[in-house]
Design a binder for these strands. Structure first.
Lengths: 206, 206, 206, 206
DNA sequence: TATGAATGAGAGTTCATTCAT
DNA sequence: GATGAATGAACTCTCATTCAT
């Protein structure tokens, strides 16, 4: 089931019993497809993402997508996983260049609240509501983000504040991504900064 | 509300442009259906909600659902609207019995973060991302909730804090509804209360 | 599962749970389709019979066939059942006009060994090998034919001879239907008559 | 046999006309595969036998099967031929150890009516109905079995009785293989013995 | 000689929708 | 006002086959 894990073969349930289905045979191409598919899923929503859509966006035929991923749902799960891993990687690279805790927190918030990431996160979350396997992934990732945030909190109770901060990031991203004129990206940044200062017990202007 | 009120004909967006479609045939039955359909949408997700699902859950035939609502998308939009109105009504009734601002805020948070309401809210939000009509509804509702919250904030900048509080409510509901053991409903309440106290500049224990 | 049984609704397992599926709503049309579908199954074999084939042969659209029968396999089973019932009816009508036991036996043999009936019988038999429900049908029908034959055997041990006779009918039909020049329909009739006489202990020429 | 013997190239009917296809690459492996494939065909039916089924049952990859046999239909025909030849070989070996005509006839009947042989025979017969090449094979084999039986008939008209006996064997195998409680293998043996005695004009108990 | 990667054709099935009543 | 019959469109999936190695 770990479509992203090491090579070899994967056993999937087919209509007429069990058959072997190769995995990671052309990893490069597969990853390319996953990246583009992530954009499609973010744009259309997971439920509405057809093989045809991904095929059109990637230039890879429908049959080949099925050869790569198995069923449509397997493809979507692979997209979620790939995106989640990619997010951690990208944020990790970014954090490696920053020293200041506030800047680090802001970098995390900016990434999580970006349109693509946030939309995929919501899709993952919905899928997780109906699929235990995905739910485990999502909860694990959620924990990882909280830990990453807590590691950058220098005052108060880092664990508690990290939960509040992650909730704020999530909750502020919602109107931003929806294009609410009352809470645009800049306003969300201000609101987050202000709230953070208060949660940490500092002066509002940090 | 719009879909439920007034007699005569309603103009709805159909697959092939605009068509007239009768309203208030048997408003009572229709509202019953909307309530049950809301549960179906919350459980399965809007994209995955078929006429047959709602038919099975309500005992009303598919053709009758179409007679009531028009297309499937029209039905979903009606469900969103009905649920949104219902939420305002229910919270309004609850608030009429409460005096203390914190209790009032908690009542709002409790309702918004309840499983059914939150799931439907996420579905509305996703639909709004792709449908301008629904987006207008959602943004208007979001504004109404912020105003309701601001009206119960007694210190600091009510408007700003209301935005932060609504974001917190939304962001905390996410792990709660997903069943994250790290942030269950009780923990979310504590985190919200604590954050609120700090955002209002009071002592943490309020 | 009894597609041929009385009206009402039938519960069939769908991909996303259980749904109701109407049965026997336009019995006349449905029976017409079953008759033609039987010819298609006899000609192409059950496994190779597609909805498309039956659609082309009947002029009824694929969707309508599925509306009538459910899945392809349900359709095939309905075809088997319909053909089996039809065979009993037709032979019953024929026997009502005959007095002489040998003529009656010959009428039975002629019907069972006819191209259409025999081919469908083989298809039923193969299907029965893999589907317990069909197996029950086939075994029951086999019993009924043996009883019908035994009722027309006037000497010796009717039950034992009936089994031998039915085996002979089946075994002789095989080369006949395949077009074996060594055993054509006339030769099969002679061989059957001769064998019957000996099995009954009479003179070969009866 | 044809497909297994001789080196060089074999001309087989492909989808797009005639193509050359190498033979006797690794005859041993190929024969192993044919034996296992025969079991698969007997179990699933020829139409339902996929390359993947044979691949799973043999451990030989799909591409290799195609390399061995060409198209799927070529593989099935090879299976039929191999099984037919194997049956003659096995019965020949068995008959070499028997003297008594009745025992020899019983040995033939037992082999033809065995589950595997009989199922493959039915599959061959069905295929022969639609493929002239296979029909020729089947009719030739049928003739060979009749001759073998006739050679062991010591009274009456051997040719005529052989046809009746082969029909009886075929017809009795049908309920036996299907698991009809009314005609199990032992009962079929008794019925065959009894019928044979009468057809040969001897006393029933031979 | 043998095999994995990739792909096109075709099938079953679901489902919204139209029409007649 | 309400509903069952019928159907076309779209989608997923299976599978044989081709190609390159």
């Amino acid at each position: 089931m770990l479509g992203l894990a090491g090579g070899g073969v994967r056993i999937v349930a087919g209509a007429a019993g069990w058959q072997t289905c190769p995995v990671r045979r052309s990893a490069a191409k597969r990853v390319e497809v996953l990246a583009v598919a992530g954009e499609v899923v973010a744009a259309r929503g997971a439920d509405a993402t057809r093989f045809t859509d991904v095929s059109a966006a990637t230039g890879v035929g429908v049959s080949t997508l099925q050869y790569y991923f198995g069923t449509r749902e397997d493809m979507l799960i692979a997209v979620f996983r790939h995106a989640a891993e990619r997010d951690f990687e990208l944020v990790g690279e970014r954090l490696a260049t920053l020293e200041d805790p506030w800047e680090r927190l802001l970098a995390i918030a900016t990434h999580l609240g970006s349109d693509l990431t946030w939309r995929l996160w919501v899709e993952s979350w919905r899928w997780a509501s109906r699929d235990p396997e995905v739910r485990a992934d999502v909860l694990r990732d959620y924990t990882r983000w909280r830990e990453l945030i807590a590691a950058n909190i220098t005052a108060g109770d880092p664990v508690r504040v990290a939960r509040q901060v992650l909730a704020l990031i999530d909750g502020l991203a919602l109107p931003v991504v929806l294009g609410d004129p009352a809470v645009d990206r800049a306003a969300a940044g201000d609101l987050l900064e202000d709230a953070l200062a208060r949660l940490l017990g500092r002066a509002p202007s940090l």
